[in-house]
Simulated assay, not measured.
Amino acid sequence: MGYTVWAAAWVAWNVFIICVYLEVGGLSEDSELLTFSLSRHRSWWREHGPGCVHKELAAGAPVPGAGCALEHGYVEALHSALQILVALVGFVCACYVLSVCTEEDSCLRK
């Protein structure tokens, strides 16, 4: 039962992440919603996305997003969509196990 609640919350969180990175409904990755104003958020995919070239400035800081095949926001959205798919499969499996256990009462016996 706990897993079904967690999976539903995980789906909701990943839908929120998709909306932030695709800037749906006035949300933006530049807002402080993801970090609760506690830190400066930077997407890992900005520098390590598919096809990104690691160029460094004279100060040794990497240039974010140089030559990436996909923008980091799209990669974040695809990553969250995959997380939603996995959570939905787990949610369906958990609901099936719950229905079998409640019908047969065999899961509740010790």
Score class of each variant (00 low, 15 high):
residue 4 T to S: 11
residue 40 R to Y: 15
residue 5 V to T: 15
residue 10 W to N: 12
residue 39 S to K: 12
residue 19 C to G: 12
residue 43 S to P: 01
residue 34 L to N: 05
residue 33 L to W: 14
residue 35 T to Y: 06
residue 29 E to R: 11
residue 14 N to L: 00
residue 5 V to H: 13
residue 16 F to L: 14
residue 12 A to Y: 03
residue 5 V to Y: 11
residue 8 A to I: 15
residue 7 A to E: 03
residue 40 R to H: 13
residue 12 A to M: 08
residue 21 Y to W: 08
residue 11 V to E: 00
residue 40 R to C: 09
residue 14 N to S: 03
residue 22 L to N: 00
residue 29 E to T: 10
residue 16 F to T: 07
residue 25 G to T: 05
residue 22 L to W: 04
residue 34 L to Q: 08
residue 37 S to R: 12
residue 14 N to R: 02
residue 28 S to R: 07
residue 28 S to H: 12
residue 34 L to Y: 05
residue 20 V to Y: 00
residue 17 I to W: 03
residue 34 L to F: 02
residue 30 D to K: 06
residue 12 A to L: 10
residue 41 H to P: 09
residue 20 V to H: 01
residue 6 W to K: 07
residue 27 L to E: 00
residue 24 V to R: 04
residue 29 E to W: 11
residue 37 S to D: 11
residue 21 Y to T: 02
residue 23 E to M: 02
residue 9 A to C: 14
residue 12 A to R: 06
residue 22 L to R: 03
residue 36 F to K: 15
residue 32 E to W: 10
residue 23 E to A: 00
residue 15 V to A: 14
residue 16 F to E: 06
residue 28 S to W: 13
residue 6 W to C: 08
residue 23 E to I: 00
residue 29 E to M: 06
residue 21 Y to F: 13
residue 22 L to C: 02
residue 27 L to T: 02
residue 19 C to A: 08
residue 21 Y to G: 01
residue 19 C to K: 11
residue 4 T to L: 08
residue 31 S to V: 10
residue 23 E to G: 01
residue 7 A to R: 06
residue 11 V to D: 05
residue 28 S to A: 13
residue 34 L to I: 04
residue 17 I to T: 05
residue 16 F to M: 14
residue 25 G to Y: 05
residue 37 S to P: 07
residue 30 D to P: 02
residue 40 R to N: 13
residue 5 V to L: 13
residue 37 S to T: 11
residue 22 L to P: 01
residue 16 F to S: 09
residue 33 L to S: 15
residue 5 V to P: 04
residue 19 C to V: 03
residue 15 V to D: 03
residue 26 G to I: 03
residue 44 W to E: 09
residue 22 L to F: 01
residue 29 E to G: 06
residue 30 D to I: 04
residue 6 W to E: 14
residue 13 W to A: 14
residue 15 V to G: 03
residue 34 L to S: 02
residue 11 V to I: 10
residue 27 L to S: 02
residue 8 A to F: 04
residue 7 A to Q: 05
residue 12 A to S: 11
residue 43 S to C: 12
residue 24 V to G: 03
residue 16 F to D: 05
residue 13 W to L: 10
residue 35 T to L: 10
residue 25 G to D: 05
residue 4 T to I: 09
residue 4 T to K: 15
residue 29 E to H: 13
residue 23 E to R: 06
residue 33 L to E: 08
residue 35 T to N: 10
residue 38 L to C: 04
residue 11 V to T: 03
residue 23 E to T: 00
residue 37 S to H: 10
residue 12 A to F: 05
residue 22 L to A: 02
residue 31 S to P: 05
residue 22 L to Y: 03
residue 21 Y to C: 00
residue 13 W to T: 14
residue 6 W to T: 08
residue 43 S to M: 08
residue 4 T to H: 15
residue 10 W to H: 10
residue 39 S to C: 11
residue 17 I to G: 01
residue 37 S to A: 09
residue 32 E to D: 05
residue 33 L to Y: 09
residue 33 L to N: 07
residue 9 A to L: 10
residue 6 W to V: 07
residue 20 V to N: 02
residue 18 I to A: 07
residue 36 F to M: 15
residue 24 V to L: 09
residue 34 L to D: 00
residue 6 W to D: 09
residue 42 R to W: 14
residue 17 I to K: 03
residue 5 V to C: 14
residue 14 N to E: 02
residue 22 L to Q: 01
residue 15 V to Y: 01
residue 21 Y to K: 03
residue 39 S to A: 14
residue 25 G to P: 07
residue 30 D to N: 07
residue 37 S to Y: 10
residue 35 T to V: 08
residue 23 E to W: 00
residue 13 W to M: 13
residue 33 L to Q: 14
residue 41 H to Y: 13
residue 16 F to C: 06
